[in-house]
């Protein structure tokens, strides 16, 4: 009989060599290629936008150029919009959204996992979730005002309910995503029901959970504007709406840029969290 050492030598060695090691650092050009392309298109876009104003292609009242938006930003930073500093509008909006997101994630993920794991719970709650989820949340505004008044509660509720529902649906689907083969492999290794959930179903669902949280936060951020239309007197959403009625298109565009950048930043952070905590997303094994 062959010894163990001999046997290990029998295994094809070149195969081990071609095994993909930990991600190798790519050449600088390859690494920066796509960010550079994106940077170039954005720069070109801003340039053309600026020229459209400087060369009077478009009435600056209809489309204020970037330089004017920048000037407005500095002005609002110094003196505020309607007696409220710009950073306060910004912070009010992000604070409202973040509180609602956190509560939605903390309550929605467990509920969704429960619905995915228990067909009974799923059947009991699914009609409500599926009815409410595609419902345009703006339709709820009159009711929300009657229920919560026009304070912070109303805004919180609107942002919360829009992200919560899609988190629940996403989490329920993520639980069901575990393949039969993976489940069976764990069972033949002696995993009981609890272990199967903790060590297989849950980590297996993690990448999809991240994706559904990303989508939900996008939806929640969208409904911020709707929430701040509810008789608010601060916040980026309110600022945009209010400035619109005074034809301050520069303030409107500034608000839009800030709303867009913040949403983009939220998503970017989540992508990085996902890479950090679920690096196997999309990988075959």
């Amino acid at each position: 009989m062959r010894s163990e050492a001999e046997l290990a030598l029998l295994l094809p060695q070149q195969e081990a060599a071609t095994g993909k090691g930990p991600r190798e650092p790519a050449a600088p050009w390859r690494r920066w290629k796509y960010p550079l392309i994106s940077g170039t298109t954005v720069t070109l876009f801003v340039l053309v936008w600026q020229l459209s104003g400087s060369l009077n292609w478009v009435d600056p009242l209809l489309l204020p150029p970037p330089s004017e938006i920048l000037r407005t930003a500095l002005e609002l930073l110094a003196s505020g919009y309607r007696q409220t500093p710009l950073w306060e509008h910004f912070l009010t909006s992000t604070a409202r959204a973040l509180v609602a997101f956190v509560v939605a994630i903390v309550s929605g993920v467990p509920l969704g996992l429960g619905m995915g794991l228990s067909p009974t719970l799923g059947a009991a709650l699914n009609p409500f979730v599926q009815f409410l989820r595609p419902l345009p949340k703006i339709a709820l505004i009159p009711l929300v005002i009657v229920w919560f008044g026009i304070g912070e509660g109303a805004k919180f509720f609107l942002i919360f309910i829009s992200s919560f529902l899609s988190i629940v649906v996403g989490a329920a689907a993520a639980v069901l995503g575990v393949s039969q083969a993976r489940r069976r492999a764990a069972q033949t290794l002696g995993a009981n029901r609890r272990q199967l959930f903790l060590y297989v179903v849950l980590p297996n669902a993690l990448p999809e959970l991240f994706t559904s949280v990303r989508l939900s936060i996008g939806i929640g951020w969208t409904s911020l504007i709707a929430a701040e239309m509810v008789a608010a007197s601060s916040g980026l959403g309110w600022m945009v709406i209010n400035a619109g009625s005074y034809l301050r298109t520069d303030v409107v565009l500034l608000g839009i840029v800030l709303l867009g950048l913040t949403g983009y930043f939220f998503d970017w952070s989540l992508v990085h969290l996902q890479r950090r905590f679920a690096p196997w997303a999309g990988m075959d094994s």
Binding site: S179, A181, R182, R184, A185, A186, Q187, T188, L189, G190, Y199, V200, P203, N204, L206, A278, W280, M283, D284, S285
Partner: peptide, 19 residues
């Protein structure tokens, strides 16, 4: 009646846990 650790199994696919 049920799977158990005294009966190990190797599948057609490796079915490793990627995490």
């Amino acid at each position: 009646h049920a799977p158990g650790p005294e009966r190990g199994m190797v599948f057609q696919q490796p079915t490793l846990f990627p995490w």
